[in-house]
Amino acid sequence: MGLLASVTEPDIRRHLLRDEGEVIVDEVRKHWVAYVRAVLELVLGLAILVSVPFLDPDLAWLPLLLGFGVLAHAGWKALHARMDRFVITNMRVFRLHGVLAQQLATMPLSRILDITVAKPLTGRVLGYGHFIFESAAQEQGLRDIRFVGRPDDRDLAIQRVVQRSGLRGPRVVN
């Protein structure tokens, strides 16, 4: 892993229980829609910087500072979205997020009672949705997973893993 990747990519494999046979079924990155706000801020910051040569030289430092501040915030928002990962394994689901301080929220497959897939109108058009997990412990760090690309496919992947693990009982075939 290169220097840039070590800063911009979370180390998912480090959190796997390899000695227990845990393998990744799906690693979910944020849908591109999650980056729209950061891109809009980037455009705003660039517009502010482009306007600097047309301003009074004595006051140009203020828009220059503001432009760089907006660009830095846009970069931070983009990095925050990039570092947020939702992972489905054969034993559990977990979410790793955070840039400087990282948080890991884990839920064993046996504790998943219900998954709600919320797809707003824009999500239906652009191909993203939000997962809402229900478990016996209602308030956990894994309740809301936002901006999941191909949410129906990801939901089916979770259901398949739960079924294959034998947690829902045997399949009934007529």
Rank of each mutant, 00 (worst) to 15 (best):
V7K: 05
P10T: 13
P10W: 09
P10Q: 13
D11R: 06
H15R: 08
D19T: 03
V23G: 04
V23I: 04
D26M: 10
E27V: 10
V28R: 04
R29D: 09
R29Y: 08
R29C: 07
W32K: 13
W32C: 05
Y35L: 15
V36R: 12
R37L: 15
I48Q: 03
V50Q: 07
P53N: 12
P53M: 09
D56C: 04
W61R: 15
G67N: 03
L71K: 05
H73S: 07
G75Q: 01
W76K: 04
L79Y: 05
H80Q: 14
A81L: 08
A81P: 00
D84P: 02
D84T: 04
V87K: 01
N90P: 00
M91W: 03
M91V: 07
M91D: 01
M91S: 06
G98C: 04
A101I: 11
A105T: 00
T106E: 14
M107E: 02
P108Q: 07
L113C: 01
D114A: 10
I115Y: 02
P120L: 13
T122H: 10
L126V: 11
F131I: 05
I132G: 07
S135F: 03
A137V: 15
Q138W: 01
E139V: 04
L142P: 00
G149M: 09
R150D: 14
R150T: 05
R154Y: 01
L156M: 10
Q159A: 15
V162S: 05
G169S: 09
R171D: 11
R171K: 10
